[in-house]
């Protein structure tokens, strides 16, 4: 094999392809701890095992998320991103707040929250549907806003 005539060198492989790096960790939550400090520079979907869709694709971004006792107990065994979410959700926050406060893309936050919920580490309160047909609920919101001064 001859070298490239123009002296082209293949660039060093600077990051791992998402699908290769990711597969581990789905069947054991201890995976990823060795990589904790390396996470921040990676492309967002590397954090989600290459998946761009949450386990539950319909998880609304206003859904409320709260860490369970199980999640708090598992904290030390979780990889960095999961751990940050479990910590943040000690107090109830929305999926949108998880994204904003942890600097995650909203789609990534959705996937990670859905993963943790599937493991029982988070409890998720989704909106009730069809919310926009529920007169009592709308009356409650109206009264709540009227109380603002």
């Amino acid at each position: 094999m001859t070298p490239e005539p123009d002296g082209f060198d293949a660039p060093a492989l600077s990051h791992t392809r998402a699908f290769l790096a990711a597969g581990r960790g789905q069947d054991g939550d201890a995976a990823g701890t060795a990589n904790d400090s390396a996470v921040s520079g990676l492309r967002p979907y590397l954090l989600t095992s290459g998946r761009a869709e949450p386990v539950d694709q319909s998880l609304e971004i206003e859904s409320q998320v709260l860490t369970t006792d199980l999640g708090a107990t598992a904290y030390g065994r979780l990889s960095f991103e999961y751990r940050e979410i479990v910590r943040l959700c000690e107090d109830t926050v929305s999926v949108a707040e998880v994204a904003a406060k942890l600097g995650l893309h909203i789609g990534v936050a959705r996937v990670l929250v859905a993963d943790l919920a599937a493991l029982g580490y988070l409890v998720v309160q989704r909106p009730t549907f069809p919310v926009n047909q529920d007169l009592n609920l709308i009356e409650r919101v109206i009264r709540g806003l009227e109380a603002i001064h």
Binding site: E62, L66, T67, D69, Q125, R126, T128, L137
Partner: peptide, 11 residues
């Protein structure tokens, strides 16, 4: 935590 329930979100 077992007795805490997150609020229902509306938007």
């Amino acid at each position: 935590r077992r007795t805490r329930r997150p609020p229902v979100p509306v938007k």
